[in-house]
Design a protein around this nucleic acid. Sequence first.
RNA 1: GGGGGUGUGGCAGAGUGGUCUAAUGCACCAGACUGUAAAUCUGGCGGGCUUGUCCCUUCGGUGGUCCAAAUCCAUCCGCCCCCA
Length: 386
Amino acid sequence: MNKFLEKIKRGTNEIISIKELENKLKSGKKLRVKLGVDPTMPDLHLGHTVLINKLKTFQDLGHQAVFLIGDFTARIGDPSGRTETRSLLTVDQVKTNIKTYTKQVFKILDRKKTEIAYNSKWLENLGVTGLLNLAAKSTVAQMLVRNDFEKRYKKDESISIIEFLYPLLQAYDSVALNADVELGGNDQKFNLLFGRQIQKDYGIKDAQIVIIMPLLEGTDGIKKMSKSYNNCISLNDSSKDMFGKIMSISDSTMYRYYELLTNLDLNMIKNMHPKAAKKLLAEEIVKRYYGAKESLKALKEFDRIFIKRDIPENIEKCTMENVTLKLSDILIKSTMVSSKNEARRLIQQGAVKIDSQKIKDDIIINVHREFVLQVGKRKFKKITHQ
RNA sequence: GGGGGUGUGGCAGAGUGGUCUAAUGCACCAGACUGUAAAUCUGGCGGGCUUGUCCCUUCGGUGGUCCAAAUCCAUCCGCCCCCA
């Protein structure tokens, strides 16, 4: 029992309340564990998987994972952590997002053991009366307690009524699903607790336990992982990119990733050489999304390019029309740079290599034979003529 | 309906007539260093060529004033707040 609890506790910020959780676990009941995700973005990144991993932990312990797709709420947009009102999504956008989400989620969760729910099922039928009944259970003051709302209100920024409705709807999901546990990120704390309150209002005595996970830092190791900060490792990234990005995080961030993204023993990891540990982490994570084979390939490729400073195995070919061309023109024609000025700059800075030979001037090149053109450490193209 | 505010490069944010391709920070790119990194340091971060104290194009849109406009005026558009 304690071992189970330890697993659940790993990496969590807060569990409200731990006592209730212990009791529920002791009762031997198969707990309904809710994780709600709004399909608002085209794809998921590693930050999102922190919660999915936690849900997987419950699933592995024999509990019922309930993956809730907020197809209805996605159209409103969760104001959590936002500093501005977000624009509404169309039904079509939501639909395509759902597809990519589920595809990615079931690389982690066991599809057969997972209950998938869509909140449009009950929210669409709630009607104005239902909505009013729900809204009657809260007050404006209560909403304004919320940090992000309070800030925006004080700063004379707009808050849409629809945003007030959001926590109510999320809470109602917990009623509809009869959740025993709800998982959420740190920014979700208010909404999660609100779910507890509303459940009680609707006569559920044994209200949901709230498990709050930290938000995963992005590749910069400081800010939370988010597209807008440009510090994401997306599940859509190629195996090579994913591997490379993980290798580029700092050592301290690496341990964080271990804690939140894997189930590996942390003591063991801390005893490893950091470089080896980081490689293992990258391998583990890439393996999860691309399989062992691809993962090994990515590892080898990384060694080749960054450690041995060698040329990658498969390089995209690019055919030139003319035989003689300026180096800067070749760089543009092969789409390795976007402007001539940029090409000139990079050449001056010593970033451009032909067959591993640094070229420092914008010389004229004869494309008689095939050669490998390199820009920086990671961009390679094979240049040929006809 | 009335009053006020605001719109600057990927983001944040200076700049209120010439010295503005526009400070600064972040992000990004390259080089050096290294255990791949991170940190640090250096250079860069509109476009073009004839590489120059060169040319062209940017400060919500349009039109105007002026030798000269991100900066002034007019007008339009967007966003925000307050009062009713």
